[in-house]
Design a protein around this nucleic acid. Structure first.
Length: 495
DNA sequence: CGCATTTGACCGGCGC
DNA sequence: GCGCCGGTCAAATGCG
């Protein structure tokens, strides 16, 4: 279809380019063009004239009026075709930009996670140094927890980390960090993280093969602390989870991925067994999920996702994959130890504040696994079950500042939520994946919407949309939603 | 027969 | 050190 239209457009453009350019020429020339148009639109008419069937000027004038109308129609078609072609070009450009944006987002999230973890380390260092020697550290900044000062501190740490990667044994002072700050591109930092993960180097020069990092690295110096911190960060990345609560009679919600069951256990505190699945769409895909019915309400199915796909996904599966990565990255961006200390600061992306309905989304930062819980089970008159758990004092929950269009969306309104989101946000693929794998999730929004519409289980797609809101807000720090309903994770399934 | 599921065994982390 | 618990493995089993 497209090539046909395009071809026709080209032909019409040729004709009317001549028409427009010759508008100011002699009438004879104009008549000639009309003949061309007539021949184009009414084959045979010109032939009648040539045969002398109708040679009167009046008739010709009448025909000219008709052809001008048709010419106008053709012009309209031309404009439409032009607009269509322009739209195609813009869409193509848009897709390219989205891919670029995805990459930037991935880098941003990885950087942000490292930033938060480093900040925690910095805080600990400040606490230690304040006891022994309080000359180097800017103490008031510690108390502020707000504004640009702390942000600068984080990048100072990042700068230090970046340098520590290059100069592994050197132990930079606080003053050095200021100078390093200016020249620390984010990519270097992210690459630094990756290298730390793949090749942990101790001050003694001992290296560990990838994937065989010691769980408890000895604390030799600042560099080994960096390594340990990086390991913890990456461990958090790997362990971050997204839990979805949805009412379903089926044993497993359909999320577009292929899963293979590899185990089932009876979990403590829940009479229902917990099933373990791993993704089988690609060999070695690390994504796993646990499915278990809620002990309190067995009509509720709790699905917990962990990990990121290492392979391209169909659009339907991409929705849920985006859910896990986006929610996990959102959580990780502020779930490090003492995240409570920075939750009130401008440093924390507002995505952490969860502009989505608090009744739908719950953050859980307790050890060992940070978890985002998406609760799709409650109705307008029913509080979500997970809110019966004690609300964590470490997380702000200012419900009053929720955006009106998201506040208190009941489950029956979630389809509207999805629709409005898809239309307003554009593409759930713009979610910030915290690992580079998500860069391959580059499907246009039309595909995603179609996939969601075609999804036999709309809940899964709905989850993706809601989490997408988190992800988008995560990127958009301009949002003013300092709220979230959060709680310490008392365990999705037990305890 | 090949693949998926089931299920008991096994392993590692953690608390006492 | 021991037991508990969550998670995974892998042989046995089921199914199309």
């Amino acid at each position: 279809m497209e090539p046909v239209d395009q071809k026709r457009v080209v032909n019409e453009m040729d004709f009317f380019a001549g028409d427009r350019s010759s508008r100011q020429h002699a009438k004879a020339d104009d008549d000639h063009r009309r003949h061309v148009k007539i021949e184009t639109e009414h084959p045979g008419l010109l032939q009648h004239q040539a045969e002398g069937v109708n040679t009167g000027l009046n008739l010709l004038t009448t025909n000219s009026t008709a052809t001008e109308k048709s010419a106008q129609n053709l012009k309209e078609k031309q404009r439409l075709a032009d607009a269509r072609a322009e739209l195609e070009r813009v869409n193509a450009e848009n897709q390219r930009l989205k891919l670029t944006l995805n990459q930037v987002n991935n880098n941003y999230c990885a950087l942000q996670m490292h930033l938060v973890s480093l900040m925690q380390r910095q805080r600990n260092r400040i606490a230690e140094s304040s006891e022994a020697n309080n000359t180097e550290i800017d103490r008031p900044m510690e108390d502020k927890t707000h504004g640009e000062g702390i942000l600068a501190r984080q990048f100072m740490d990042l700068g230090q980390s970046a340098k520590a990667e290059k100069d592994e044994i050197s132990e930079s002072s606080s003053q050095d960090r200021s100078a390093e700050l200016s020249g620390s591109p984010g990519n270097t930092i992210v690459e630094s993280m990756v290298r730390r993960e793949n090749n942990s180097v101790t001050p003694e020069g001992l290296s560990h093969p990838p994937g065989l990092l010691p769980n408890k690295a000895p604390k030799f110096s600042t560099t080994s602390q960096d390594n340990e911190q990086a390991q913890q960060t990456m461990a958090m990345i790997r362990k971050a989870r997204v839990s979805v609560r949805a009412r379903s009679e089926a044993s497993m919600i359909s999320d577009g991925c292929q899963w293979r069951k590899y185990g089932q256990k009876m979990a403590k505190g829940n009479p229902c067994p917990r099933a373990y699945y791993r993704c089988t769409m690609a060999t070695g895909c690390p994504v796993r999920k646990q499915v278990q019915r809620c002990a309190e309400d067995r009509s509720i199915l709790v699905t917990t996702y962990e990990g990121n796909h290492n392979h391209p996904l169909p659009p339907a599966a991409m929705a849920m994959a985006s859910t896990t990565s986006a929610a996990a990255s959102t959580l990780l961006s502020g779930s490090m130890p003492s995240a409570d200390g920075i939750m009130n600061s401008n440093l924390v992306p507002k995505g952490m504040m969860l502009p989505g309905s608090p009744s739908l989304i719950t953050l859980s930062a307790s050890a060992p696994f940070p978890t985002v819980t998406l609760d799709l089970t409650h109705n307008p008159n029913q509080r979500p079950l997970n809110q019966v758990h004690p609300i964590s004092p470490h997380w702000p929950h200012n419900l009053s500042s929720l955006p009106p269009h998201l506040l208190g969306h009941p489950v029956y309104n979630q389809s509207k939520l999805l629709g409005s989101f898809l239309s307003s946000q554009g593409n759930i693929n713009e979610l910030p994946g915290h690992l580079a794998q998500n860069q391959m999730h580059g499907h246009p929004v039309a595909d995603t919407a179609a996939a969601i519409a075609a999804d036999p289980n709309f809940t899964a797609a709905l989850v993706a949309a809601i989490t997408s809101i988190i992800g988008n807000s995560h990127r958009d720090n301009s949002g003013g939603n300092d709220n979230s309903t959060t709680s310490r994770n008392t365990g999705d399934n037990n305890t």
